[in-house]
Design a protein around this nucleic acid. Structure first.
Lengths: 330, 330
DNA sequence: CTGAAAGCGCTTACAG
DNA sequence: CTGAAAGCGCTTACAG
């Protein structure tokens, strides 16, 4: 800016006004043009850091997910970055690896960089950090997960209803001994899936039995699935349908029962959260609950921008419906 | 900093020295401790923007890929962010959507934010923009693709050799009429695959025939594959093996020939770049060329940091070998 | 219509 | 051992 001002023979103030299209009607048109031309000629690039320092707006948002290489999050990230870009925002990102500590560290780094807001898929134990963000009045919106005890913005799946509808569908189809295999976790959004499963059974007069639900840690899924599935199939009378908590679990389960010789859906119906691409060629394509990822991303960024720009203090707690995609497995 | 200085009764200069652990042995230990305690007490957060403005180092790098939701890139992004974080760098990212224009825009945005360096998966036509970066002496390293005419850092697959080895393997297995289905593009790294394919045939005394190679645009893959595969299978004598340029193409091709009733690998052997998860349950698991994604990401960030920090002007042009994973399809 | 000046939150060469 | 002061590249209230 100094160089431009010098070359044109004006103050940097004028250069700033012109280049930011301010006070347009009060500035000599020819002079303004000359300033613009000179800026182009010198290949002038505004230093966004200096700008941000002065204006106290970094035009930057931070995105913290548990694993950016997970298609679930990378699909959301894609949308978020795109929409942010359209609104002149740049996105910083990081993976928390399901560690609340790592997540907090990332958030701190981003805060030091003066992000205007954060989008977070919080891990177990993130409550404290989120409360801190609230105290510092840093706008943020949670995605995928949230904490019912915390008054925060969030955009998530209506997991209760999704599981409820899945089980209702199975009941409609005549299955009555419906088991569930899901992840072992304290995260509320996953508990909701179990509640939805149980709620649907109860509403049809079936008492959910604890033995029908298996919770296993994601890390040990590969070794635990055969054992757990064997248990469910060993019950008398046998389970005739399973609701799976994730595509990974569904993949392992189907491969296991396929190896055992059970037929889908005759011997066992399968319904899962999220699509299982690895089973594309399975003779019975798997019915699944599709999460509206693009919409989740779009809403998350929209809620955040609203909060940031309009200093909106209104809480947005959005639960999106899953789409039940029916195929041969049910 | 002002608040801390005031509260302790020292200058901000001293606060800065203490908080950055500078001149440790020249500063009164007790005073230093008091400053640190006060910083913690006031929940002091250094403003990284101000720091960067002063030091002319933003500790920020930009990552531009064609699509962050593509597992290929999201896996690399995961590593890059992690390694960057370990070196105190923060990552800005964006998707270029294979548009050189969008890529240039993102680069401009990142440059205005004073990134210390860039990692780019360049699209067709990116040469000009890359030359610009060189003129401005902004450190960058290309991933996945590169331009042979440009003297830039890059980390990519040795596509020639990968294709060469794939075809050599097929020849070793007794296949002689080997076709190739690949993407239609001007990008050098994809051309290399064709050259490798042709080179392997020639070295075994087989003249590559133009009819044996089909190039189709990724967008029309779904509709074009059946037609193209039919052509290859319609040749007399028939093709007995196919090298596929990507997992998407392989997926579509296998499903098509499966529907036609051809047996793999008896009627037709299949070998592809990248793993095809959607064919997990196919009776003949597909042999593939595995790209070392974590290593690519790690090397990319390493080369970039080297260039940035040690002001390294040495060119790093790295071609990584693919791993030929042999399964039943060949 | 235009400019001088202060200030955003830091760092650092220099002086003492 | 510590501080006064300049300056990074911008913006903007104020004066004229």
């Amino acid at each position: 800016m100094k160089d431009i001002a010098q070359k044109v023979g004006v103050s940097t103030a004028l250069v700033s006004y012109v280049l930011n299209n301010q006070k347009v009607n009060r500035i000599n048109k020819e002079l303004a043009q000359k300033i613009k031309d000179t800026a182009k000629e010198l290949d002038y690039r505004p230093n966004q850091l200096a700008k941000s320092l002065k204006t106290a707006k970094s035009l930057t948002i931070g995105l913290i997910v548990s694993d950016i290489s997970n298609p679930f999050f990378s699909n959301i990230a894609r949308i978020i970055q795109e929409e942010a870009d359209n609104s002149k925002y740049t996105v910083l990102f990081g993976s928390s690896d399901e560690s609340a500590h790592k997540s907090a560290q990332l958030a701190d780094t981003f805060i030091n960089r003066q992000v205007d807001g954060l989008i977070i898929a919080p891990s177990e134990g993130a409550e404290e950090q989120l409360a801190y963000l609230q105290r510092r009045e840093i706008p943020f919106v949670l995605i995928d997960r949230y904490f019912p005890a915390l008054e925060t913005n969030y955009v998530a799946l209506d997991n209760y209803r999704a599981a409820y509808e899945a089980v209702s569908h199975l009941l409609d189809k005549g299955y009555t001994r419906i088991g569930m295999v899901t992840h072992e976790t304290g995260l509320f959004h996953l508990k909701e899936r179990r509640y939805g499963y149980e709620g649907a059974l109860k509403d049809r007069g079936i008492a959910p039995h604890p033995d029908w639900v298996k919770e296993i840690s994601l890390k040990q899924a590969k070794t635990a699935i055969p054992e757990v599935v064997d248990q469910l199939l060993g019950l008398v009378p046998r389970m005739d349908a399973l609701l799976m908590g994730s595509n990974t679990l569904a993949d392992l389960t189907v491969k296991h029962i396929h190896a055992l010789g059970y037929k889908v859906p005759k011997d066992l119906a399968i319904l899962t959260f999220d699509e299982v691409e690895s089973l594309d060629l399975f003779y019975a394509p798997i019915s699944y609950l599709r999460q509206p990822l693009p919409e989740m991303g779009r809403l998350a960024i929209q809620v955040l921008l609203d909060n940031m720009e309009k200093n909106n203090t209104q809480l947005s707690q959005i639960q999106l419906p899953a789409e039940l995609v029916l195929r041969a497995s049910t």
